[in-house]
């Protein structure tokens, strides 16, 4: 039906976006729900793997830093394996690789490995735990020995020294390096879109393939990732200001 008042502003924008502009913005906006769901999946994957991976990495890092016999070598091998191979390859081995074996498909493992989301979470957790172990190990080793000695002089047990002196100190020091790992994990999470999960990049790929576009889906995804990285870096800034307050020069 023709609008008697002639083309409206909205029509003008639609016309510009669809015909004159090299990028079709209206298409992106029309699919905002798909992108919003994509942001949800990306955040879920990254947050869950960071929490579980981070928790796993603490004991591993301490075992490495204290050179606990046997455990130290095993953890070293695990870290080497997961830092030495690309995340995409790890995901493919878990998703497509394990599914090839009948024995896996007939075991209870298949209940978990059947689902793309679980496969992705397993790969992400193992990957981020390996990197975080190395970050925390370095931080634990960097704790000034004088503080440890002072704790010993107070008669603290090794366990108490670790939980009260070494770890709080090490975790603070690790914050800046750890913020990088969080950002890398966010960027690495795009590989989820290769195993049918519609994360942010997955949504972009669907938009592109549905309308045979080259840029729109990727640009929308890029903007969303940038916003998330901005939020992450701001968050860590605030956190560092709080935990590193003792390192700042005192106000006169």
């Amino acid at each position: 039906m023709e609008d008697p008042r002639g083309p409206s502003l909205l029509d003008a924008i639609r016309d510009f976006s669809g015909n004159a502009s090299p990028l079709d913005f209206v298409l992106i906006i029309q699919h905002w729900e798909m992108f919003a769901a994509g942001v949800g999946y990306t955040l879920l994957l990254v947050a869950v793997s960071l929490v579980i991976g981070g928790a796993l990495s603490l004991p591993l890092a301490v075992a490495r830093a204290y050179r606990t016999p046997v455990v130290n070598q095993v953890v070293w091998a695990y870290v080497y394996l997961f830092r030495g191979t690309p995340l995409l390859v790890q995901l493919y081995i878990i998703y497509y690789g394990l599914g090839q074996f009948e024995i896996v498909r007939e075991s209870f493992l298949w209940l978990v490995l059947r689902e793309p989301l679980w496969c992705t979470l397993i790969a992400f957790v193992l990957n981020t735990a390996a990197y975080t172990t190395e970050i925390f190990r370095g931080a634990v080793e960097a704790v000034p020995y004088g503080e440890v000695e002072a704790a010993k002089a107070y008669g603290m047990s090794a366990r108490l020294r670790t939980s009260r002196i070494v770890l709080p100190n090490a975790l603070r020091r690790a914050l800046p390096a750890y913020s990088n790992e969080v950002i890398f994990m966010l960027h690495g999470s795009v590989v989820a879109s290769t195993v049918t999960i519609v994360d942010i990049l997955g949504a972009g790929r669907i938009l592109n393939s549905k309308y045979y576009l080259a840029y729109e889906g990727f640009l929308a995804a890029a903007v969303l990732y940038m916003l998330l990285v901005y939020a992450i870096t701001r968050g860590f800034k605030i956190w560092e200001r709080h935990w590193h307050a003792h390192l700042r020069p005192r106000a006169a």
Binding site: Y96, G99, P116, T196, G202
Partner: peptide, 18 residues
């Protein structure tokens, strides 16, 4: 609906039982 990059991956996942 599950979307794959290639048709070969679709068959791979059908055979795997996903």
């Amino acid at each position: 609906l599950r979307l794959y990059q290639t048709q070969e991956e679709v068959f791979l996942d059908l055979a795997a039982g996903r």
